[in-house]
């Protein structure tokens, strides 16, 4: 296995919309994992998470997960985080046969 650097990302669901969000470096929330702040250590991410948990009206059930990092790209490794980042892997709705 190549030695892929690990980083830690804070994520949660936006309270109003329910959509997936990632914490940026400036403390705002991004919809794309590309904009997430990659924490170097888990301890650092957990410390930041504790602060974020106070903002419940903005973000619901935030948590930290580990991801791979190569250059500027952050890549989740678990099936769950890949699907959260990319959206459902299935076609969202049926082919539309109805006339109207």
């Amino acid at each position: 296995m190549p030695n892929v650097p690990t980083c830690y990302v804070i994520t949660g669901s936006l309270t109003e919309e329910g959509l997936v969000a990632y914490l940026r470096a400036d403390g705002t929330w991004a919809s794309s994992i590309a904009d997430a702040h990659p924490f170097e250590s888990e301890a650092e991410a957990e410390a930041r998470l504790a602060e974020v948990k106070g903002a419940e009206s903005i973000i619901t059930e935030p948590y930290v997960f580990a991801a791979e990092r190569s250059g500027d790209t952050i890549r989740p490794t678990s099936a769950r985080e890949i699907l959260r980042a990319e959206g459902p892997s299935t076609r969202l709705r049926r082919p539309d046969h109805a006339a109207s």
């Binding site: 419940e56 009206s57 059930e61």
Partner: peptide, 28 residues
């Protein structure tokens, strides 16, 4: 009350669930 902060998510969760509202992987 949830959006104003009067209810915490822990308090709101059972209330929303009794109205069929989950928070799933991508959305409510």
């Amino acid at each position: 009350r949830r959006l104003s902060g009067e209810l915490t998510e822990n308090e709101f969760k059972p209330l929303r669930l009794q109205n069929g509202l989950y928070l799933q992987l991508h959305a409510y």
